[in-house]
Computed example of a mutant assay.
Amino acid sequence: MKTKYVHDLGPSLSPFNAWQILQGIETLDLRVSRQSATALTLAQHLAQHPKVTAVYHPGLPDNRWHALATRYLPRGVPSVFSFDLEGAEDADTQTRVAQVIDALEVVRLVANIGDARSLVSHPASMTHSHLNAAQRASAGISLKTIRLSAGLEDPADLIADLDRALARI
């Protein structure tokens, strides 16, 4: 009998897992709002940093998507954005990127994004590693691009962590 119900209805959640999902849904708006605000704060800071040449965040006024983000995202911009390190793409680019990422203590190197923790990834060697240089360029990704997903940590702690890491190059 149980087999028929599982087949027809699928397995059921345990009460604890169901409670966790409900808690997550009830606080989702608060978490996304915090992450969005933090990402914008980080993007604004990085846009002024001397070791960063470009920040790709629609919340910044000079971003090509800013007008559309203002129009279609009135409650906040995305919590995931990218930035490029200074310098030309050369033999030392991978080393500079690795130095920055390795120096981060609060922000973690992880393959996924959208977590409650702040995460960083290097698209050229991770998610877009199968593309050649021309394909990466057409996607707006260079060897010196770093992707950042803002979490729930204090923005001041994240800024200090990024500044400390960027000082390594």
Results as ranks from 00 to 15, higher is better:
residue 5 Y to C: 09
residue 6 V to R: 08
residue 11 P to K: 13
residue 14 S to G: 12
residue 15 P to G: 08
residue 16 F to A: 15
residue 17 N to M: 14
residue 17 N to K: 06
residue 19 W to Y: 08
residue 21 I to M: 14
residue 23 Q to D: 05
residue 24 G to E: 10
residue 24 G to F: 04
residue 25 I to D: 05
residue 26 E to N: 13
residue 26 E to T: 07
residue 29 D to M: 07
residue 30 L to F: 07
residue 31 R to Q: 06
residue 31 R to L: 03
residue 34 R to K: 13
residue 35 Q to P: 00
residue 36 S to G: 02
residue 36 S to T: 04
residue 41 T to A: 14
residue 43 A to S: 04
residue 44 Q to V: 08
residue 44 Q to K: 15
residue 44 Q to T: 14
residue 45 H to Y: 14
residue 46 L to R: 00
residue 48 Q to R: 15
residue 49 H to R: 08
residue 50 P to A: 10
residue 50 P to L: 10
residue 51 K to G: 04
residue 52 V to A: 06
residue 53 T to V: 12
residue 53 T to D: 07
residue 55 V to I: 11
residue 55 V to Q: 01
residue 58 P to M: 10
residue 59 G to C: 06
residue 60 L to A: 10
residue 61 P to N: 07
residue 61 P to T: 09
residue 61 P to W: 15
residue 65 W to K: 06
residue 65 W to Q: 13
residue 66 H to N: 11
residue 66 H to L: 15
residue 67 A to S: 09
residue 69 A to F: 07
residue 70 T to H: 10
residue 71 R to W: 12
residue 71 R to F: 11
residue 72 Y to G: 01
residue 73 L to M: 13
residue 74 P to C: 11
residue 74 P to T: 07
residue 74 P to Q: 11
residue 74 P to I: 14
residue 75 R to F: 13
residue 76 G to W: 06
residue 78 P to K: 03
residue 79 S to I: 01
residue 82 S to W: 04
residue 85 L to R: 03
residue 87 G to F: 15
residue 88 A to R: 06
residue 89 E to F: 03
residue 90 D to H: 09
residue 91 A to T: 11
residue 92 D to L: 13
residue 92 D to V: 09
residue 92 D to Q: 14
residue 93 T to G: 05
residue 94 Q to Y: 02
residue 95 T to A: 11
residue 95 T to W: 02
residue 96 R to H: 10
residue 99 Q to V: 02
residue 99 Q to H: 06
residue 102 D to N: 15
residue 102 D to M: 05
residue 108 R to D: 03
residue 108 R to A: 09
residue 109 L to E: 02
residue 110 V to G: 01
residue 111 A to P: 02
residue 111 A to M: 07
residue 111 A to D: 08
residue 113 I to V: 12
residue 115 D to I: 00
residue 115 D to L: 10
residue 116 A to K: 00
residue 117 R to A: 15
residue 117 R to K: 13
residue 118 S to M: 05
residue 118 S to H: 03
residue 119 L to N: 02
residue 119 L to C: 02
residue 120 V to D: 02
residue 120 V to L: 06
residue 122 H to E: 10
residue 123 P to S: 05
residue 123 P to I: 12
residue 125 S to R: 11
residue 126 M to D: 06
residue 126 M to N: 03
residue 126 M to C: 05
residue 127 T to P: 00
residue 129 S to L: 09
residue 130 H to D: 12
residue 131 L to T: 02
residue 132 N to F: 13
residue 134 A to Y: 03
residue 136 R to D: 12
residue 137 A to P: 05
residue 138 S to E: 15
residue 147 R to T: 05
residue 148 L to N: 01
residue 151 G to Q: 00
residue 153 E to N: 00
residue 154 D to N: 12
residue 155 P to T: 04
residue 156 A to G: 03
residue 157 D to H: 11
residue 159 I to H: 01
residue 161 D to S: 09
residue 162 L to G: 01
residue 163 D to G: 04
residue 164 R to N: 09
residue 165 A to P: 00
residue 168 R to P: 00
